[in-house]
């Protein structure tokens, strides 16, 4: 059963600290498209991202890509299956150089393809090239976010999950990242974008979900929500 290369999340529930914080979420992401995931603080978006990455384990539900269920698989296996995650907070390997950060991410790729994979990322984020020798911890937040997204892209994923892409970054940086994400999606990668700036997310996305209190409360084409942003506020309040 192929699903046409879609990433299908069904009935995912997650417990954290002994308490269920995500209660059965369904979400479908399409290849080559950007899917926005919105929601207020504590809605459970990051928990869902970590479960997708395999860092925490979902207590029920399934995540299917080409028919294989990825729930319970190791982070490495999930990465190999083609899902790359950028956790929130533009996290990078701080005491390693930019070049090493990319090299670490390239270890999943067959040895001979590694330099080319790194080059591809550097051509997407040209700003990183002169910073190769710098420690990642000394970069600005925007540079770190580029590096983090770059790391995710090195292994040529089919799906890219970015948590809080613009949180804490200057608007000028966000303006730089937006076209980059478009290019990534245009190249056929399915993107799940978690954003606090609803506007940014809805401009980019074709499909949008909103979560509140561990549940999906809205699922609609992004264009519809762009026209009627108040629908989101209402849904949050109801939940």
């Amino acid at each position: 059963m192929s699903n046409n290369g879609r990433l299908v999340i069904e009935g995912i529930a997650i417990e954290r600290g002994g308490r269920e914080v995500v209660h059965g979420v369904d979400l479908v992401a399409e290849p080559g498209a950007i899917t926005a995931l919105l929601g207020p603080n504590g809605a459970g978006k990051s928990s869902l991202v970590l479960a997708l990455a395999g860092t925490i384990k979902a207590s029920r539900g399934s995540v299917r890509l080409d028919g294989a269920d990825l729930v319970g698989k190791s982070p490495t296996a999930i990465r190999t299956a083609g899902i790359a995650t950028v956790p929130e907070g533009h996290r990078v390997l701080k005491d390693m150089t930019v070049a090493d950060n990319l090299r670490v991410a390239s270890l999943l790729v067959p040895r001979i393809e590694r330099p080319a994979a790194v080059d591809r990322v550097e051509s997407l984020f040209e700003e990183l090239t002169p910073l190769r020798g710098r420690l990642a911890g000394s970069l600005s937040g925007g540079q770190q976010q580029m590096l983090a997204i770059g790391q995710a892209l090195v292994s040529q994923p089919r799906y890219l999950v970015v948590d809080e892409m613009s949180l804490g970054l200057a608007p000028i940086i966000v303006r730089r990242l937006v076209p980059a994400l478009r290019r990534i999606a245009a190249a056929g990668v399915g993107v799940i974008l978690i954003e606090q700036f609803t506007q940014v997310a809805l401009d980019l996305a074709s499909d949008a979900y909103a979560m509140a209190q561990g549940r999906v409360v809205v699922h609609a084409p992004a264009a519809e929500l762009r026209e009627a942003p108040e629908r989101l506020e209402q849904a949050y309040r109801l939940a």
Binding site: R79, P87, L93, K94
Partner: peptide, 13 residues
């Protein structure tokens, strides 16, 4: 440097 991130990057911890 960062265990969790390294594992998300695909390192076989």
């Amino acid at each position: 440097s960062d265990r969790e991130l390294a594992s998300m990057l695909g390192i076989r911890v």
